[in-house]
Amino acid sequence: MSEPKNYMYKSWWKILSGVLLLYTFAAGILLSVPRLPQLQETIRNLYFHVCMWFAMMVLFTISFINAIKYLRSNKLIYDIKSRQYAVVGIILGLLGYLTGIIWMSYTWADPNNPAYASFNSIAREPKLIGAAIALLVYFAYLVLRDSIQDIDKKARISAVYNIFAFAMLFPSIWILPRLLPSLHPGAEGNPALNFNDISPTMRLVFYPAVIGWSLLGVWIATLKIRIKMIKEKIIL
């Protein structure tokens, strides 16, 4: 290990993450929310569903930065980081889908039809397609990694793909919503960041929640990185 005491071993941001998440759960469930006809109390899911996607993008961005760092320095530690952040990002993306499914089943799904029948109309949602592209890209990244035996070669090729895919991913996330008709709120850009989208009281919970979930994701990733570092002590 070249850098002995970096952010991974500091505890203040882990405590901050715990405090923010406790606050998210307490305030998110207790504070009053505007009652919209379609949403009612399900709007509280905003503190969980949207935060998952934010945290996912944060982790993918960190993975991308570590891929660049790897290509610049050829240090395997950056490759390990890049991979672990991508894996945790994928998990958060899947959780984002899961919370989305719960929310959708109360608001979008037609109660007279079985969920299976309404799936293909709901799946054509640009936000869902964008998220699916992101997850497919990172699944492909993992498949590509595992298909190469040589450690240095694996690190270099997967870093190249990571950078290429990430750079192509962002334009697509901006382009897609403008192409397809959408039921999803915030079709013109980033949902919940727009000032007309959410009420001031909700913003009091939403911003801390985003930071809390992102920090939790980083925390999980650093734990995985540290385990990996112990396992790979010989090559590092």
């Binding site: 592209i133 070669k153 090729i157 190249v160 290429f164 192509m168």
Partner: peptide
């Protein structure tokens, strides 16, 4: 180029490329 470096066939090209080409 990536697939050739990874010594893989054209199938991995499709896996890598489809998500990127969708938009």
């Amino acid at each position: 180029a990536i697939a050739a470096k990874a010594q893989q066939n054209a199938a991995i090209m499709a896996i890598l490329g489809f998500p990127i080409i969708i938009p």
